[in-house]
Design a protein around this nucleic acid. Structure first.
Lengths: 135, 135
DNA sequence: CTCTTAATGCAATTGAGTTGCAAATATCTT
DNA sequence: AAGATATTTGCAACTCAATTGCATTAAGAG
């Protein structure tokens, strides 16, 4: 029942993984398309990203504003479920993982957890340093 | 600078507020359109919802899968920022507020918080009771 | 009742993401 | 190295949520 698909190492896949790995923040499809500079078709990017997610090489996450972004799996191991906080900067728009910030909470009786998405909006260190030096 | 706009109480707005208030869960644009049963245009629904959010009568939130949903402001006061957990059921698809579940966490130096979006996926009490009685 | 302007309806548009299908190419076999 | 086979890709067309411009309608203040 669990179809085993033989994955292939293609030019597009290699390039996309490289791009994702080089970024410290989550990237949109558009970001990646731009970085690839015409190396492959738009549709291919979508398909490669889907595959990467299936292979646990990348995370797909939705920002507070509904924008879908992708992130290379890095320190992922027990962190794979992203129980940590994602920080979404209101100024520069960056979406980053705060691997060490893991919220504590308890679900009421009857709720069963399978996945978590914690996103915090605000100003990142870079931006809050620049804009509100005197606050 | 802070433009004061005179809001009007219209048929569409009243109907939409009523629908949202009667729902215990967050609703999509489509849910609302269905409930309105042709009372007004699709576009009007979008515009009314935008207004409701601006007036703090409703919340706009994005589910883990990127679907935008709306929720009437209810117990909102200090809760307005939605520091509590939203629960998104994988089976029935409901997105509800767990007002009493407020995660504890500490942001690293330099990060300034303005808004929070905590969404937890899994099975809600209703669904986990139905499907996995013997778990 | 009249006037001002917010709100609405309609048609057209944008943009993200998907799908079907034929052509290209990665990988396995011999 | 050549051939077989199934995965990947490109292309064009499509879906679906959401937005926009503009003319018309209707709140609600005076």
């Amino acid at each position: 029942m669990a179809e085993k698909v033989k994955r292939r190492k293609t030019q597009a896949k290699t390039a996309i993984v490289d791009i994702l790995k080089q970024s410290t923040q989550a990237m949109t499809h558009q970001d990646i398309e731009l970085a690839l500079d015409g190396l492959c078709n738009r549709v291919t990017i979508y398909r490669v990203l889907d595959r990467l997610v299936k292979e646990d090489l990348a995370h797909k996450l939705v920002d507070v504003d509904g924008v879908t972004k992708y992130l290379a799996c890095r320190d992922c191991g027990e962190n794979h479920l992203h129980h940590h906080v994602h920080f979404s900067c209101e100024q520069c728009g960056e979406l980053t993982c705060l691997y060490h910030v893991v919220p504590k909470f308890t679900l009421p009786e009857g709720y069963h957890l399978s996945e978590v998405n914690f996103t915090v909006r605000g100003d990142c260190p870079k931006c809050s340093a620049t804009s509100s030096a005197a606050e």
